[in-house]
Design a protein around this nucleic acid. Sequence first.
DNA 1: CGGTGTGAATCTATTCACAGCA
DNA 2: TGCTGTGAATAGATTCACACCG
Lengths: 203, 203
Amino acid sequence: MNPIPEPSVERLLILARLLDRLDVQFITSGEIEARTGWSSNTIRKDISYLEGSFASPAGYDREKLSGAIKTALGLDKPQRFCVVGLGRLGSAYLNYPAFAEEGYELVAGFDSSVNRIEILRSPVPLYPAYKMAEVISRFQISLALLCVPPEEAQHATDRLVAAGIKGIINFAPVVLQVPEGIQVRNVNVVDELRAISATIQCS
Amino acid sequence: MNPIPEPSVERLLILARLLDRLDVQFITSGEIEARTGWSSNTIRKDISYLEGSFASPAGYDREKLSGAIKTALGLDKPQRFCVVGLGRLGSAYLNYPAFAEEGYELVAGFDSSVNRIEILRSPVPLYPAYKMAEVISRFQISLALLCVPPEEAQHATDRLVAAGIKGIINFAPVVLQVPEGIQVRNVNVVDELRAISATIQCS
DNA sequence: CGGTGTGAATCTATTCACAGCA
DNA sequence: TGCTGTGAATAGATTCACACCG
């Protein structure tokens, strides 16, 4: 595998989303520009990092292109993930059906409160936090949604890392410390509001 | 105001978060490196875009630095925002207290279903969708959380833009088309899972 | 000294311009 | 002719290296 530049990866991910919701057979780089705002040059360059050919004089074959992006970015391989912290947010994800359609299988939920685990009704098996290492390695879970309160976030992260997790989606307003190679993505509405404020201010 | 590079802005936002949760008087660029993984060079360069001095031989004055970041990025000016689409996700935000503490005031909720507006109990005034333009301009609302179903997202966006909104946080798995100058940030757990998969694959 | 601040050098990404193809 | 694909040129961000300051 080649190293596709990070910014190109981000754009290709969004492009795959776009293509999957479109109802045409072909699309040109110019049309993608109109829909995304990225220049057609950038788009063609991004696509050139993929292997294979999806082009015709009418533009790219939508379906083939979408498939090639997913293959190149590893989105075709299904992944197992877990939810850590079963408060309001975490427990909401236990019943969220869209994951499976996208190739992400939720196979475990963890919480440090045994009481909470016993009370919650869930289609997904729930475990006390101390079983994290065992369950993660047994089911080969690669990703985690981290939904614990801020003061517990780093501790939970350390456990996940020790258990061999590959990536964490962090909902806590905290900067997590992880060893190199572990991916973290932060999801936080306030931070997004701030980012927009900042962009407006700096432009 | 100067144009701080985009990547620096993103890092400074995270740095502000970090500083606010820390309990020390001074912090050096090396300590920030240990916590974030960014090189101390990068951090010093980022900080150099700010105006003023917060340095001592012991490092940066945590509080002053945090303040300077917020001023430079416009986080000190309170902003008003609204929620569009009052389904499960949207209505959850109506009762979320953390916004106010961060300087973001939720002043309106919109939904196209009048019925839903009448039924929902909310500390925030709710309006039918057709009043969007009027309410947004009356209260000078600058930001919106877009929580409508995917098929309505573009239509709602067009209305928000027409009403003069400055930025949109989009929870729908859709690529929004907006005129230049309108900020959009996408928030979507599946996309974050995908981004991690891709980063793992491409590294 | 242990830190910061910053021009200069390097590395990376984007844009351009045009050759090649159906 | 209208598109893609891509080396070359430009612009931008990161890293380096060292002067400077308390």
